[in-house]
Design a protein around this nucleic acid. Structure first.
Lengths: 245, 245
DNA sequence: ATGAACATCTGGTCTATACCAGAAAAATCT
DNA sequence: AGATTTTTCTGGTATAGACCAGATGTTCAT
């Protein structure tokens, strides 16, 4: 029988107490990165609550970005965020390596396509223009972190899209180093699609952070449009903006 | 008795069907902005599921950013996103007005304080330096959208912090127009604290988007640090970044 | 040693029911 | 008509069970 006893007047949901406890365990380091959290049934037993309540607590841990769940395997402690420096994205991969981050790239899909109305508008090319498309999955220390789909003008950079199966640094340097240019970027939070969730190892309907970039060369011509979707708890974007008026 | 019948082999969770149905209602415009969604009990009855399942569906709507819930009032259709153009933040309020957005500002708290280690480090001033602090709530058409806490060097801008109780445009223009300068910005997703959730009209443990800005004057001296926390489904940040190497 | 069969554990989904307290509307009393 | 009480409705929290199917580990026969 359910009775929400509150002796001192304060109604603190039970699952919140469990969250506080688990959070303390993680922060204290007793549960290191990628360590398994107790299962829903174990939490329920330890704290004397029903499984659904234990589940709420563990889901709250996920919402806080402190844990992630793997279906039928368990829940685990999240690794720290990966910073994405927007203003020096040309060096993202090399910078990450310098900071001791082991970034790995998996090519999910490559292909040729023509620009539909939306892409044509973004890239300022006529509709039907030939584009190359790549989708890559970025893993940080083996842990899926974000997905990127990139569209580039086919003529210019077709060769680049073939080379790098899992190569890390050469890619960005080859592509960007000859240019000094600017980029428009848009960042928002949105739910993951089923496929995205699958690739990122998440359950669908969870929220992630989407970042869209439109990169221009020094003549002002847009030549590359990319759309990233990050695990929200792992993403951080930093930039230096010029405040104009 | 629970029986997850799947005649054609595909296991589509029931609550997902309900989500699809509600999403279609919204997109078709049958449920306009801020209109009430059917209650948990109503959804349960209409779709012949238990209330907990109906609840899951409605919570998924929230996760998608299509709805927001008001405790003991109901769930409602979310308004569209508000774009925050990082590169022209000096004109954020006036720009928003030009685009037909009715932005309203409520001052939640103001005060004087001294810089602790963290703030001193960020603003590059000695620890103990006098700062002015303001917390404001921004509403879009009466709908709470984001909270901002701003720290400025007390000597320079103390007067500015008093003036604007609910004033919209004068604030930013007065403060920024004499300067041409740059700003560092950091964007990430994080859960809301209990107080933030309260002010934004959300339940705690939900995720929002945090944006931190460090603004410098033309001499390079940091003079203003602000931290915003947005309702995730309403936030969008756009910027033009210079890609350096 | 290797591989197959089995049992166990996991998160995901679902039911049916219950109590709580605030919001809102309806009924009632001035 | 206006203020007050009462009822209804709402989301939030909680229980105690259940089935599913994939992942994992153990046992056992080969």
């Amino acid at each position: 029988m359910y009775r929400n006893t509150k002796p001192n007047g304060t109604t603190a949901p039970r699952f919140r107490r469990i969250v506080d406890h688990l959070r303390a365990e993680i922060i204290a380091g007793r549960l290191p990165e990628h360590a398994a959290l107790p299962s829903e049934r174990a939490v329920a037993g330890q704290h004397g609550v029903s499984r659904m309540t234990a589940r709420r607590a563990l889901e709250a841990m996920e919402a806080e970005g402190l844990a992630y769940s793997a279906e039928r395997k368990g829940r685990f402690v999240s690794p720290p965020r990966l910073n994405y420096p927007v203003s020096s994205m040309a060096n993202f991969l090399t910078d990450a390596e310098k900071n001791g981050v082991e970034l790995e790239v998996q090519v999910i899909a490559t292909g040729e396509r023509t620009a539909d109305a939306a892409l044509a508008g973004i890239l300022c090319v006529p509709e039907g223009e030939a584009l190359s498309e790549v989708t890559r999955l970025f893993l940080n220390g083996g842990h899926a972190t974000f997905l990127e789909t990139e569209y580039v003008l086919a003529g210019l950079y077709a060769d680049l899209l073939q080379a790098h199966d899992a190569a890390t640094k050469p890619l960005a340097e080859q592509r960007f180093s000859p240019f000094g240019h600017d980029a428009d970027i848009v960042i928002r939070m949105r739910p993951l699609s089923a496929e995205e969730a699958e690739l990122l190892g998440l359950s669908p309907n969870q929220a992630g952070i989407e970042a869209e970039q439109l990169v221009r060369d020094e003549t002002g011509q847009a030549f590359c449009f990319s759309r990233q979707i990050w695990r929200g708890e792992l993403a951080q974007f930093s930039a230096r903006a010029i405040v104009n008026r």
